[in-house]
Design a protein around this nucleic acid. Structure first.
Length: 132
RNA sequence: CAGGCAGGCUACCUUAUCGCCCCGAUAGCUUUCGGGGAGGAAAGUCCGGACACCAUAGUGCGGCAUAGCGGGUAACACCCGUCAUUUAUUCCAGUUUUUAUUGGAGUAGAACGGACAAGUGCAACAGAAAGCAAGUACAGUUCGGCUGUAGUGAAAUCAGGUAAACUCUAUGCGGUGAAACGCCAUGUAAACCAGUGUCCCGAUACCUAUUGGGAGAGGGUAGCACGCCCGAGCUGGAGGGUAGGCGGUUCGAGUUUUUGAGCAAUCAAAAAUCUAGAUAAAUGAUAAGGACCCGCCAUUGGCGGUUACAAAAUCCGGCUUAUGGCCUGCCAUAAAA
């Protein structure tokens, strides 16, 4: 494995972010969920126009984190944990999915907790996918 | 050594590894290289503007705001100066046994600042009474509860007080906000059903259009009325589409420095400079080390924590609130030596 390929697999460019209002509404209306407290994953199989396997968004509810600074912090931690662990699902799942990762806890977490829980969440997702 | 008031500055750094957004070059379908990437309050959305649309924003009523005087400004409810009032404090002089108190001057602030000679209202305690109804004692008397004195009170029938009471006066203010606004993409979409309206005259043209005048359902003008504008459609039902992209959008009352004017706010000139533009929303995460500060032990030092408040969303000028650290000036001096 050369250097460029190794760097590329942890990237999280704009194309892999879920941004369309329509798709987000569809995801929340029809998607299934897995919870590994304090995280919750909502997923829905969708085929994208631009040939991307996954599109992902992260959510930190305003209800639990009133300050914009704290919401930003939580979202950045979630995004970072997803970015560093996404090769696991890329390597184990064939289909195309829209994903949303929600933080449903009320306390400010540290990164190590978020990473641990994200790994657990993705393992559950892969297990469930292979079972179906 | 702790305190009070006023003002100013600042808002951790380095390295490594992964990553995000924008711009430029390169390359040609996503590589490579270079550059840039939150704040003093970006916040609250409380005032004032720019800008856009509604009529180049008009008239009356209503409504709102401001309130000594002068200045600054694009503008303001902001800022600066000043006057009166007022608070604290010092000094001088007077009264007094003292506590105190009066006058003058200085220093530092600061809340308040049009009108009670138009009308309406309100006023604790005391008082008969703080107006519409009464009336104590004594005296006078033109015998009219007419006048005076006493008594209560800050004030007693009167040009008392109160407008952070209504109100009046002067001045200012049109409305909606970037989800404004313009363009493109998408749709049997100028389609279907029901109700209602689709009028009149003249000219050109010659059977359907153009143009001038009148009438005109309905609509716009975001409190109401007028006025103005659009006007051949409008309202409801059923059914369907989009919910994306581009512009607006970051070069502007811009920033920094110097000089000059001014008590100051601020203004003028010159030189240099370009400094975030995201849109389910970038500006980060982790690790190690080091400053700064805080807490505890305690005073070489050790241990622990590690920055506070808080993140652009069209852009500026203010105000208010939150908050870590440093510095300056003034005031006041307890306790100990």
């Amino acid at each position: 494995m050369d250097k460029t390929a190794r760097l590329k697999k942890f990237a999280f460019p704009k194309k892999e972010k879920l941004k369309s209002k329509k798709l987000i509404e569809q995801l929340f209306a029809e998607g299934k969920s897995i919870t590994v407290f304090p995280l919750k994953l909502i997923y829905l199989p969708i085929v994208f126009d631009d040939d991307v396997q996954f599109k992902t968004m992260v959510v930190a509810p305003k209800k639990n984190f009133k300050s914009a600074v704290k919401r930003n912090r939580v979202k950045r931690l979630l995004r970072e944990a997803y970015r560093l662990n996404k090769p696991y699902i890329f390597n184990n799942i064939e289909g195309n999915f829209a994903l949303a990762i929600l933080y449903i806890g009320k306390e400010m977490p540290d990164y190590h907790l978020v990473e641990l829980k994200t790994k657990g969440l993705l393992e559950q997702f892969v297990k469930k996918y292979n079972h179906e």
